[in-house]
């Protein structure tokens, strides 16, 4: 739980990064177009650049920092490493948060379905094939292991 006083114009993304030093969520476009800022709000994936922090008062926010259990990475994080699903890594935390929700939503039945349901996350380095592999692996290794289990 964090208690913060912010101006109404501060987005959730800026509050996380600048006020709470949770820099896992990245600022790519700041316009909802890239997905780098994806976090979970009460278990649902949200682009944190497009919501005001004041609107999230009292809600449970999960950033990529909250996915690990102690030293143990989340199955989706493991899968991204094993599948080498990044190059520069800028999009990765957003991809992972989106993947966790995508698995939770049950949208990983086929590679085409995965592609459609993570299409809100762009990768400038073009690592899409490996990202799809990682999401598929993550879904297998974390059945139902999405948002519900994630940390704060």
């Amino acid at each position: 739980m964090h208690r913060l006083t912010v101006e109404a114009r501060v987005t959730l993304l800026d509050a996380l990064r600048d006020r709470l030093a949770l820099t896992g969520a990245k600022k790519g476009c700041d316009r909802g177009e890239c997905g780098a800022c994806t976090v979970l709000v009460d278990g649902r994936r949200v682009k944190s650049c497009m919501t005001l922090a004041v609107m999230e008062d009292g809600r449970r926010i999960t950033t990529v920092e909250g996915l690990t259990r102690g030293d143990r990475l989340h199955a989706v994080q493991e899968a991204f490493i094993r599948r080498d699903a990044f190059q520069c890594g800028f999009c990765t935390s957003g991809q992972i948060m989106s993947a966790v929700a995508c698995i939770d939503e049950g949208r990983t039945g086929s590679d085409d379905e995965i592609r459609e349901w993570i299409s809100g996350n762009l990768c400038r380095c073009g690592c899409y094939p490996n990202i799809v592999d990682a999401v598929r692996d993550g879904a297998r290794n974390a059945p139902g292991g999405g948002a519900g289990e994630a940390g704060r």
């Binding site: 649902r44 682009k47 919501t51 299409s119």
Partner: peptide, 9 residues
């Protein structure tokens, strides 16, 4: 329309 993140919100 849009992306899953946008549609959820």
């Amino acid at each position: 329309s849009a992306s899953p993140q946008v549609r959820g919100r």
